[in-house]
């Protein structure tokens, strides 16, 4: 474990906590894409299949349980909670995430480290995570209303992935532990997807103006 990875995990944890708190306290999910949340629940469900078979560490298991619990409860809130669901703008959140899931599944079947169920599912979860933010970014472009909690959520998510890239570099240099190139590429693609958001987010923060994404 190194500082980059620990802070990456903490940033990731913060992003889901921020989101859950927002939904739970103000009982609203305005501006949040349910499609992205469903994709994240899928990411964790397919990545943590080994939670009971391969024990890595207490930390690892606890974090997996937290990510599974938070992602599924966010989806539950947005779908079934009688008050929260009313603030979900399904007219705007129309991204067909099936068009993201299918290519990821096909790619995972073709490009993977080892053709076993668990390995293919793990690779699939990497590809889905790389594109999971797209529905949320599309929704932000459409609704233009980035309330600062949603902005913080996306920012923290991007920061976590960027920290993970530093973690992979660190591990490569120190532990001679190379992360599989699949992990590298999908992590890089994911971080790049945030790049433009980061640009506008930091600019708006610097000029202390409301965050506006270009049309």
């Amino acid at each position: 474990m190194n500082i980059f990875r620990l802070s990456g995990d903490m940033t990731h944890l913060m992003s889901v906590i921020v989101l859950l708190l927002k939904i739970h306290t103000i009982k609203s999910c305005a501006g949040i894409s349910l499609k992205t949340q469903e994709l994240y629940a899928l990411v964790f469900a397919t990545r943590y299949l080994d939670i009971f078979t391969d024990f890595v560490s207490v930390y690892n298991t606890i974090m997996k349980l937290i990510f599974l619990a938070t992602s599924f409860s966010i989806v539950w809130y947005m779908r079934h909670h009688k008050i929260v669901r009313r603030s979900y703008d399904k007219e705007q959140d129309t991204f067909r995430h099936l068009f993201l899931i299918l290519p990821c599944l096909i790619l995972a079947l073709v490009v993977n480290e080892k053709f076993t169920f668990k390995e293919v599912m793990w690779t699939f979860s990497l590809y889905v995570e790389a594109v999971a933010i797209l529905p949320q970014l599309v929704l932000l472009q459409r609704t233009k209303n980035i309330d600062n909690l949603t902005g913080q959520y996306v920012f923290l998510l991007g920061a976590y992935r960027a920290l993970y890239i530093l973690n992979w570099i660190y591990r490569y240099l120190t532990e001679k532990h190379f992360v599989h190139w699949i992990t590298w590429i999908s992590g890089l693609v994911q971080t790049l997807l945030y790049a433009d958001f980061f640009y506008y987010y930091i600019n708006s923060w610097k000029n202390n103006v409301r965050l506006q994404l270009p049309a």
Partner: peptide, 10 residues
Amino acid sequence: VDQPQIHDEL
């Protein structure tokens, strides 16, 4: 072929 490493990252 080396055993695929257990994915120790989240």
